Amino acid sequence: MNKFYKRFVFLIALVLVISGIVIYSTVDINTLKNLGEFQWWSIALAVFAVALGLFFDGSRLMHLVKISNEHITLYEAVQVIFGNYFLALLTPGATGGAVAQLMFLRHAGVPTGKAAVLVIVRTLLSIFFLACCMPLILLHDHGIVPGISNTTLMVITLAAFFGILFIVWGARKGFLDVIVVWLTRKFSITKRRKIFAFYRDTKSAISLLLKSPRAMLLVFVESGLNLLCIYAIVPCLLLGLGVYDADWTSVMGRMIFLNMLLYFMPTPGGSGIAEGGFVLLFANTVPAGTVGIVAVCWRLIAEYIPFLIGLYYTLTVFGRDFLNRQLAQ
């Protein structure tokens, strides 16, 4: 069995095991009663929310490519987006997602250097939007994480926010170059080259962000709409369970908080951590005995279905040989 099939089978097994454990550990005597009242129209509403989010994702990518003086079609943008979902779930820490975006952008005719910059910009904008939301979430939702005060979380969030601004300012002024060289002075030549290449692409990404402020503001808004639509899956599912009086601001805030953490988790696509974090954050919001099922449904609609579509596009465009080469690296 080749590398691709081994990784694919492992992922499927991992998803099934995690889903089974999450559901088994959260069911109780109220599960069947609450599921019996579930309204199936909420599934269609959740799928529509995902589709709308993917539309904004494709739109922001096309606008980004236009800012870099290149051009891609909507269909090519769709391939980039779903390819990202596919390889992100197949690789630890979702590192393969960036590779997939780079390869699809190159296939669409975007030069490698610009493609690498665009991938970094997409990630930076998403993280920056979430970072901007975090202070508002922590001010509204007290005790979001048991055992950790909101004050501590606020300090961490503000430190990360100003850290991002410092990196942008330092890269633009040039003195961050000296810091990077000093921090990597004891690394091997190979590692230093990789770090310098990534840092060079990051500087180019920052330059692109500041190149066209008005156009980039539109891309930033589209980034936020993309994420909010994807996170709206959970409110849609809760409505289907008859939850009409929830604090929807807190629900969306906790989804933002959870997904912010998933950007830095080492497991493929955040598997395991996403489901566990969801159960922890929403145990008191979701009807009794259904929090695990809602967590699995959320992951299915938000990640696993786009993963399968990304598999189709990747095999269609590049074939299995490409996957074997990428997964072997």
Rank of each mutant, 00 (worst) to 15 (best):
residue 51 A to D: 02
residue 197 A to P: 04
residue 105 L to I: 01
residue 149 S to H: 11
residue 31 T to Y: 13
residue 268 P to Y: 10
residue 327 L to N: 14
residue 55 F to K: 04
residue 149 S to R: 06
residue 2 N to W: 10
residue 294 V to E: 08
residue 106 R to P: 00
residue 217 L to D: 07
residue 308 L to M: 09
residue 102 L to N: 11
residue 108 A to W: 02
residue 134 M to I: 14
residue 137 I to H: 04
residue 211 K to Q: 10
residue 286 V to Q: 01
residue 271 S to T: 15
residue 308 L to S: 14
residue 288 A to Q: 13
residue 136 L to Y: 14
residue 288 A to F: 07
residue 205 A to M: 10
residue 10 F to P: 00
residue 268 P to C: 09
residue 185 R to S: 09
residue 97 G to F: 02
residue 22 V to I: 15
residue 290 T to A: 15
residue 240 G to M: 07
residue 151 T to Q: 06
residue 39 Q to L: 08
residue 131 A to V: 05
residue 162 F to H: 05
residue 89 L to D: 05
residue 16 L to Y: 01
residue 320 R to M: 11
residue 55 F to A: 05
residue 1 M to C: 11
residue 274 A to K: 10
residue 268 P to Q: 03
residue 303 E to F: 09
residue 164 I to A: 14
residue 133 C to Y: 00
residue 41 W to H: 06
residue 222 E to L: 15
residue 186 K to T: 08
residue 11 L to G: 04
residue 133 C to A: 06
residue 289 G to T: 14
residue 91 T to E: 10
residue 95 T to L: 13
residue 253 G to F: 09
residue 230 I to D: 12
residue 122 R to P: 12
residue 4 F to M: 14
residue 80 V to Q: 07
residue 162 F to T: 10
residue 3 K to E: 15
residue 87 L to Q: 02
residue 59 S to I: 02
residue 296 V to E: 04
residue 102 L to R: 04
residue 50 V to W: 01
residue 57 D to L: 09
residue 39 Q to N: 09
residue 311 L to C: 05
residue 93 G to Y: 11
residue 213 P to G: 11
residue 176 L to T: 13
residue 274 A to W: 06
residue 301 I to F: 05
residue 283 A to L: 14
residue 40 W to E: 03
residue 33 K to I: 13
residue 299 R to P: 00
residue 35 L to T: 11
residue 202 T to K: 00
residue 144 I to F: 14
residue 187 F to R: 00
residue 256 I to H: 04
residue 27 V to W: 08
residue 257 F to M: 01
residue 272 G to W: 10
residue 177 D to P: 00
residue 222 E to A: 10
residue 96 G to W: 11
residue 80 V to L: 07
residue 158 L to I: 15
residue 206 I to V: 12
residue 83 G to E: 13
residue 155 V to I: 14
residue 295 A to S: 15
residue 193 R to K: 13
residue 190 T to D: 14
residue 105 L to Q: 04
residue 127 I to F: 10
residue 317 V to A: 07
residue 194 K to G: 01
residue 113 G to E: 15
residue 50 V to I: 15
residue 67 I to A: 06
residue 278 F to L: 01
residue 230 I to V: 14
residue 41 W to N: 06
residue 143 G to A: 09
residue 129 F to K: 08
residue 86 F to K: 03
residue 142 H to N: 08
residue 237 L to W: 03
residue 168 V to C: 08
residue 157 T to E: 00
residue 209 L to D: 15
residue 242 G to A: 11
residue 251 V to H: 00
residue 273 I to G: 01
residue 68 S to F: 12
residue 89 L to H: 12
residue 235 P to R: 03
residue 324 N to R: 11
residue 90 L to S: 15
residue 97 G to R: 00
residue 153 L to Q: 12
residue 7 R to M: 15
residue 259 N to P: 03
residue 192 R to H: 04
residue 206 I to P: 02
residue 218 L to Y: 07
residue 2 N to P: 15
residue 263 Y to V: 06
residue 316 T to H: 10
residue 143 G to E: 09
residue 286 V to W: 01
residue 317 V to F: 05
residue 232 A to E: 12
residue 242 G to C: 07
residue 280 L to P: 04
residue 58 G to H: 04
residue 259 N to T: 04
residue 296 V to S: 05
residue 86 F to V: 02
residue 87 L to T: 09
residue 209 L to S: 13
residue 81 I to K: 08
